[in-house]
């Protein structure tokens, strides 16, 4: 598959999560890492699910390297270029760790052979789970599942990683391993962009080059984005430019400090 050279890893236009009046416009350049922050119920996971293409908003465009996930003709190409770490890991219960990580490869051939095992083992070793290759899911801890889900997201032809709370349930040692891995994958160009939702401000500050802060009202997402820092070469735009002085706004000040 040929990736358009001038297309950014992620471009979002007219995406309305809440009321149609609040739309999100995003453009992420190569080598960027975007942290989506916000209170509980502010719509972080909802935004990620729209970026991954399993929820949609009328009139919106979400492009991964130029392929629109909401266009049925370009959807599979866009999904092939993204790896997703779900909030609940999303590992298939009847499958072993090997079969789960092999899923993106299976989309092309549907046969499990020995060549696949090396590719899968490599991904699992990256996240420190190589020893779990032939285990069943029932034998895994929550932290192991999250790491296996990350290994699966890095399989296939993924160029953009979307992760929902990637460090949740991980031990401190695993946390630093995953952090280093994400930074390294972006630095060497294996991933053209990483977008993750988190409540961990310290983690976001350490690895993200850009931030989006979502606003909530009464525990419901308003779909409004509170604009935060954007690094060189990138333009992150929100439906609401000014920071509202509402108590429901996430701790933007803490981030800026």
């Amino acid at each position: 598959m040929r990736i358009p050279s001038n297309a950014p890893p992620l471009r979002v236009q007219h995406l309305a999560l809440g009321t149609p009046a609040n739309t999100i416009e995003l453009r992420l350049e190569h080598g960027s890492t975007l942290a989506i922050l916000g209170e509980n119920g502010s719509g972080k996971s909802l935004l990620l699910s729209c970026l991954a293409g399993y929820r949609w908003s009328p009139g919106a465009t979400v492009e991964i390297h130029g392929f629109n996930v909401f266009d049925s003709r370009q959807r599979s190409a866009a999904q092939r270029l993204m790896g997703v770490v779900f909030q609940h890991s999303g590992l298939i219960r009847n499958f072993t760790v090997f079969e789960n990580v092999a899923l993106p490869f299976l989309a092309r051939s549907l046969t499990l052979d020995s060549e696949l095992e090396d590719k899968v083992k490599l991904r699992l070793d990256l996240v420190g789970c190589g020893h779990l290759l032939h285990r069943g899911l029932s034998e895994l801890s929550e932290g192991d599942r999250k790491c296996v889900a990350l290994a699966r997201a890095l399989a296939g032809e993924a160029r953009v990683l979307l992760a929902d709370e990637p460090l949740a349930a991980l031990s401190p040692r695993r946390r630093s391993l995953v952090e280093e891995l994400l930074v390294a994958l972006v630095a060497v160009g294996a991933l053209s962009g990483v977008i993750f939702a988190t409540q961990d401000l310290a983690f976001a500050r350490r690895i993200a080059s850009h931030f989006v802060v979502m606003e909530s009202s009464g525990g419901q997402p308003t779909g409004r984005v509170v604009m935060q820092s954007a690094g060189a070469g990138s333009d992150i735009d929100g439906g609401n430019q000014a920071l509202p002085a509402s108590s429901t706004t996430f701790h933007v000040a803490a981030l800026a400090s």
């Binding site: 993204m82 609940h88 999303g90 298939i92 219960r93 299976l106």
Partner: peptide, 16 residues
């Protein structure tokens, strides 16, 4: 329950 645990979405995103 596979829908709740996002297994269905995982298959969709994997292109299956």
């Amino acid at each position: 329950s596979m829908r709740v645990s996002q297994e269905i979405e995982a298959l969709e995103v994997a292109g299956l």
